[in-house]
């Protein structure tokens, strides 16, 4: 008891602004193996949804796992999920803990 169980949270970000506005660090083959949110830009869709937080680690985007994806690939997947016209939102599976679930 008392040990915090690493939990994953599904966060829906509505595309309420022309930009997503997050900065991420890390990716496969770095000491931060899954991309972590390091900055959220004021006025972007991520900021507007007010559920994404700096420090959260992104496990999946729209069901696509970022496990094993290098930094540029992970950033590209996130950017394309925001740009696609098919959906008016994006789903992030995030965790507060620096573990891969």
């Amino acid at each position: 008891p008392g040990l915090l169980e690493p939990t994953a949270t599904l966060i829906r970000v509505m595309k309420t602004a022309p930009t997503l506005g997050i900065a991420i660090e890390g990716g496969a083959k770095t000491r931060q193996p899954l991309p972590r949110i390091v900055t959220i830009q004021r006025g972007g869709s991520a900021h507007n949804c007010s559920k994404l937080k700096v420090g959260q680690v992104i496990l999946e985007v729209n069901g696509i796992s970022l496990q094993g994806k290098e930094h540029r690939e992970a950033a590209r997947i996130i950017a394309e999920a925001f740009k696609t016209k098919e959906k008016d939102h994006m789903d992030f599976l995030v965790t507060e803990f620096n573990v891969s679930l």
Binding site: T19, I24, E25, G27, K29, T30, V38, G44, I78
Partner: peptide, 14 residues
């Protein structure tokens, strides 16, 4: 000790 690059890449996603 696995040599992981200390420098971690950062990118903006707009």
């Amino acid at each position: 000790l696995r040599l992981e690059p200390q420098w971690v890449p950062i990118s903006w996603v707009y």
